[in-house]
Design a binder for these strands. Structure first.
Lengths: 246, 246
DNA sequence: AGAGCCATTAATGTATCCAATCTCAACACC
DNA sequence: GGTGTTGAGATTGGATACATTAATGGCTCT
């Protein structure tokens, strides 16, 4: 078999998730099953499976006999997610340190640190290097979560990414110092993990994630249009329209 | 919540969730769509919607063209969930203290504390009082989560309850001192929240939840059969069969 | 003219049917 | 005797048809 077998429902789920996170379907907008099934080229049955999945995932709202709507995410929601993600990833550090990272794990983290160092060596973050940077960042966080040996932690952090712009794939890249400092956090976290200083690693990670959230929210709050220009992440994110926070 | 109208799919979801958490469907067991739809008295269509929902909720495993299976929960999984729930509820305390609990909120917590005090006043936890106790416990935790004004926190903690025996509705009740001490935690958490001592409240809550997890895991590890005898919670939980941890 | 009611319409929810795929056992072959 | 293959049966995935419910627009009545 060439590709992993995929059902139409799975495909629809992935397609819809992209459409929602990319902002093609606007928050609050009603989702018409007939339209969408025609658009995606399948019947309503697999589409409805996808809608049910995405509703449980938190990307859609559902009311019986009234259909599905794209969930509205306010700045408040984004803040909420960072308040959750920060403690979950900090907990990952705490556990990883307690268990003790394996040499393989530490080697992997070191390699990721070097990849980041190399990208930043020029003194600027070139747009061409953004995909590599993003990849490094995602890998770093996932490696630590994996090191916590907690099968559910990854699931929970993953759900966190179901909110537009909260993914660690999304990076504000216009301020080089902030990027540099962020990678410095990576160094310190790795060092703390190596020395099995769990609380220390957790504290750095907490701040690492929390500050990223504060920064994003601050930017979105003052000038949403400009902010999304400096985001790199999910395709089409720049088309995303923010719901006004009250 | 009053469900004025519920679709067959919603009903099936609720029924299946109960069946899984109660252990009527055994972990690892394959779920036959025809069989179940007949059992529940509906067609496969709404049932499949329910299956998709519960899969995303984490109660079922799914593989394309191979159908659904009841997810297997090891002791390791239960430990994992407590590692998550402890930091989430601690974070709720931290945020609630930072925001400052409203008088209404504090009054509600005080009322819950008194309800607990009254139940324990006799010096024992009578079986007849268990439902009241459980209700008080659930309300206490939910009130604090609500006080954090974080719309997603409740959702995430709720997902935590999708693992058998992790719900705060489940209580080990055979050791009066432990119950007493647990309620003493409630008092101290409330006091810390009143004084807006966030870190202090968070620390107590973390320990409060973590210890409950340790206790449960210890009991299940040493003598699963005896342990479930002392659990009170979801109906039929005593029929639940634990997957052997390796 | 405005508000409320009713009928029509459109969309959702469910059942049934058909196609695709996996399971499993019997069988041939090494 | 063990292993690979193949075909029938069972089970899942998807499409379509039908039932049910909410939304809409027009109508009447005040």
């Amino acid at each position: 078999m060439i590709v992993s077998k995929h059902t139409a429902a799975d495909g629809a789920t992935a397609a819809l998730r992209e459409m929602i996170l990319a902002g093609q379907l606007k928050p609050g907008e009603r989702v018409h099953q007939d339209h969408l099934s025609e658009l995606l080229g399948l019947s309503r049955t697999p589409l409805r499976t996808a809608l049910a999945t995405l509703t449980t995932d938190g990307l859609l709202d559902y009311e019986a006999n009234c259909g599905y709507r794209v969930r509205e995410f306010s700045l408040d929601t984004i803040r909420s997610v960072f308040e959750i993600r920060s403690v979950l990833e900090a907990q990952a550090c705490r556990i990883a340190a307690r268990l003790g990272c394996s040499d393989d794990m530490l080697d992997k983290l070191d390699a990721l640190l070097k990849r980041g160092d190399d990208i930043l060596a020029s003194g600027e973050l070139k747009p061409a290097a953004l995909p590599d940077w993003r990849r490094m960042n995602v890998d770093f966080h996932e490696t630590i979560i994996h090191a916590a040996n907690n099968p559910l932690l990854g699931e929970f952090v993953g759900r966190t990414h179901n909110v537009p712009m909260v993914s660690d794939r999304v990076i504000l890249w216009d301020d080089f110092y902030i990027i540099q400092r962020s990678h410095d956090d990576h160094h310190r976290i790795t060092r703390a993990l190596r020395h099995r200083e769990g609380e220390r690693a957790a504290a750095i990670m907490n701040e690492h994630v929390s500050f990223a959230g504060d920064l994003l929210i601050d930017r979105l709050g003052t000038d949403p249009e400009a902010a999304v220009q400096h985001l790199i992440g999910a395709a089409g994110v720049s088309k995303f329209k923010m719901k006004k926070a009250k």
